[in-house]
Write a protein that binds this DNA or RNA. Structure first.
Ligand SMILES: [Zn+2]
Ligand SMILES: [Zn+2]
Ligand SMILES: [Zn+2]
Ligand SMILES: [Zn+2]
Lengths: 161, 161
DNA sequence: ACAGAGTATGATATACTATAGCGAGGCCGG
DNA sequence: CCGGCCTCGCTATAGTATATCATACTCTGT
């Protein structure tokens, strides 16, 4: 077990690097888009990335307070709203929770596989799913603006062993 | 404009019959399954069906109180939970709201087209979407237990005129 | 009819999630 | 330096959902 594996769910990758990469990418994306990647926003993104499990806004809030920082609900909701607009974070509607985007930087429609056992959420970008949704909507004269696709069930790790 | 059209969103069908049919079907389904379709549950289902728009639990609660009935949040949540278990009502996660099932009686995975303009939600059962989701999940060794597929956008009526 | 088990509802309190609104301070272009 | 805009702190409040206990109903077997 790697030194960084003890604080995340799957424990199958170097999660410290995982988080560091996400933060570096976020900084770059914000620079490119002329958005301010402030210390608060960075810390919130880091907290969201601390596991691959979706995390609730109030859980983020508690961790911010644990930093010794003064924080209230609007503090974290504003940061999360910003991160979502920039495309660095997704909201999981069925959990009222938030998770770091696995492929930030480009607009994309994603799907989530949420394991009921270990709580992880994997982000997919399946063109086939996207096409099927577009076709089904088109058949009904519906113009898609936003997609929520969240599958709950059992992940590979949890069903295997 | 038909006499029954003034209290629903699309105004393109006999909504009174629509609701009556839903209630009759519900009674039959509960009978078959040995579940009690009580007066409260019937009234809640009727309220949910009063339009084709998703309705919030607290909106249902207010209408129950308007009946002169004594009611509190658990009253409506219990009824909604029952109706969902029996498959008579679906929850729209992205709206924290509830809508009558268009095809009750048989287990099915459905998708919703939610219009941002008129607020209606149309229930689809696209085998193609379902197959694409099953394939995408299967590729990742994920066993699907529950599906949330909610598309927001503009419906045919609203984009037409 | 009666007792007892299981179910449904009433009632109160509380937890959890999200937003409104105002003001102080920082950043930046003019 | 000024003035506009953005970020953040802070308080209050709105909106959604559940825990818990008490009461009353329904059905079943005797
Ligand atoms: Zn993403
Ligand atoms: Zn799992
Ligand atoms: Zn349905
Ligand atoms: Zn519409």
């Amino acid at each position: 077990m790697s030194p960084n594996a003890n604080h995340n769910g799957s424990a199958h990758h170097d999660h410290g690097k995982c988080v560091a990469d996400a933060l570096a990418a976020a900084r770059e994306i914000c620079d490119q888009r002329g958005e301010r990647f402030t210390e608060l926003r960075g810390r919130v993104l880091e907290l969201v990335w601390e596991s691959h499990r979706p995390i609730g806004a109030y859980a983020v809030l508690e961790r911010l307070k644990a930093d010794g920082r003064s924080a209230a609900p609007p503090t974290v909701y504003r940061a999360l709203d910003f991160l979502m607009e920039v495309g660095l974070v997704h909201r999981i509607e069925s959990l009222n929770a938030y998770i770091g985007c696995a492929h930030p930087g480009a607009a994309h429609a994603s799907q989530f596989l949420i394991c009921k056992d270990c709580g992880t959420a994997e982000e997919l970008e399946s063109p086939a799913v996207d096409a099927a949704l577009a076709a089904a909507a088109g058949d009904h004269g519906f113009k898609i603006a936003g997609r929520v696709v969240e599958l709950s069930g059992t992940c590979k790790n949890c069903s295997g062993s």
